[in-house]
């Protein structure tokens, strides 16, 4: 994991200030979406080797949820945006 995450609100900060939640690419199904949809949401993961979007919380900073796009192999960080800008709830 990269040492610094560039928070869009606070600037570059050490990753220790952040808490990872996980895959930002999955969307919560409707309550009545059926077992298969819920199974996929709760258990199945793309788990890419390469570019990956995740939710990170700036826990010891502005306490905003962020979407961090990074490489799971090289640890390069491509983009960091506020999760509210994504327009989706996961």
């Amino acid at each position: 994991m990269a040492s610094l995450i560039a928070c869009p609100h606070c600037g570059p900060r050490p990753k220790e200030e952040f808490t990872v939640r996980g895959d930002a690419g999955i969307t919560r199904p409707a309550p009545d979406a059926g077992e298969d949809a819920w199974y996929a949401y709760v258990y199945l993961r793309d788990n890419p080797r390469g570019r990956h979007k995740e939710h990170w919380h700036h826990t010891s900073g502005c306490r905003r949820w962020l979407v961090v796009e990074r490489d799971t192999m090289t640890h390069t960080i491509y983009t960091v945006t506020d999760a509210s800008a994504e327009g989706e709830t996961a």
Binding site: C10, P14, E16, E17, G61, C62, R63
Partner: peptide, 10 residues
């Protein structure tokens, strides 16, 4: 102002 970690303390 900035909220940050000082050592292990926010």
């Amino acid at each position: 102002s900035a909220m940050t970690l000082i050592g292990h303390i926010s």
